[in-house]
Design a protein around this nucleic acid. Sequence first.
DNA 1: CGCTGAAAAATGTGATCACGTAGCGTAGAA
DNA 2: TTCTACGCTACGTGATCACATTTTTCAGCG
Lengths: 240, 240
Amino acid sequence: MNMPIAEAAHGDKRETVPSGRGSTRERVERSLRYALLTGRFVPGRPVTLRGLAQDLGVSPMPVREALRSLAAEKALDIKPNGRVQVPTMTPERLAEILKARLMLEPELATRAAGSLELADARALKELDDAIDLSIDGGDAETYMRLNHAFHFHVYRAARSEVLLPLVESLWLQFAPFMRIVYGRVGTAVLEDHHKEAIAAVAEGNAEALRAAIAADILGGMKLLQDAGYEAIPDTYSTKD
Amino acid sequence: MNMPIAEAAHGDKRETVPSGRGSTRERVERSLRYALLTGRFVPGRPVTLRGLAQDLGVSPMPVREALRSLAAEKALDIKPNGRVQVPTMTPERLAEILKARLMLEPELATRAAGSLELADARALKELDDAIDLSIDGGDAETYMRLNHAFHFHVYRAARSEVLLPLVESLWLQFAPFMRIVYGRVGTAVLEDHHKEAIAAVAEGNAEALRAAIAADILGGMKLLQDAGYEAIPDTYSTKD
DNA sequence: CGCTGAAAAATGTGATCACGTAGCGTAGAA
DNA sequence: TTCTACGCTACGTGATCACATTTTTCAGCG
């Protein structure tokens, strides 16, 4: 049986299809993206067309296209028999993602530095405060949403049409796994480098921003590698 | 009216849907990928669902999914009104693609070096000989197909599940533009660094392979930047 | 109690259709 | 001749259906 996506992490419904604008497929895709990014989808869990369609109250058609889209970004895995599932993580894959992030995201940060103003520093500060709260409160889902917002507020300023989609694809790939790890080790152990990043944005210091982002990535991903595979060896084949 | 994809570059039919295995959608997607990579799709040209479906002799359904897939990889552009077209190139986009390629592909080459054997060096040599022939013959389409095969023979050896798809996406993005440039300046001006790469593979010299690939990318992309925007200023809005 | 095989349920796929909309050619008026 | 407005055409979207295949369930046998 297919579990409604809202029940992936816990039981509440939330808004599975943000009533925002756009076509049905667009709303479905946004909804799935959000679910992936906040870890509502558990790695290894099968995802069915009709199941999702029913959960979202639409026909299977827009779901098909949305899934195909996400699969093309490697956010979902379509097995040879057509079955769709959230990709499972392996140490090799994780190492590759880390490498790719370290190459692309600092570059994006550097390019963004020129466009970021004091208003952005303030917005980032606000986000970071909320992030700290979610860490203290142990709210992994909120943390992931805000952390994504923090990073992409910076990256978007680079006005990059090429690098940004690549990075977005990477985030979609490790997010579900990240959520699992946080669920086990808790969010308390999280230490980010957002403060340095904010300071760098305020100063307009591109090099410092690059360094802060790189350190932030390294810290976060190291946690995944250590906690994800040493403390919790059976993480990647999680069945609900 | 929608022009059959086989007539995008010239008039012959070729096999638009390689009769290979897999589902209809898979064949359609392979066909479109091939057309994109060999430059049969002209940047800016509108692509219609029904048109492609008729050209390929299938229903619009598998075409829809294939287009959605390619669009997610930024190989096609779906405008807000739903219209699909081959993305047009801009100097900024091209510069970004070059940057991304220079970050990702040499890394892939380094990782591949360990797995590449003498048999691979021989296979690459054969490919390169054919490439030289296609350059002399001015056959841009064949050149592009073989050049892609050459690079990805190397990259695939890295057994990368993360980096490789990112690079594939990049190739799909610049290939149509590349084809336009070759059509104008001819293939004679092409100078690659395949010989060095082959030698590096034969020696198992990872660092030399990385350098050869980096040089090859730099050379090819510089040509696009120079010839694509200085000699031919109106390239990116090409209407059939 | 465990294994096996058949029936049943569920899944992805591809096709067809209806609908609303955007693009475009054409005719009419200024 | 040029601009405008109307009507036609073609398009993407979403829904529904039929079909083949796979997965699951469960009853019967060993």
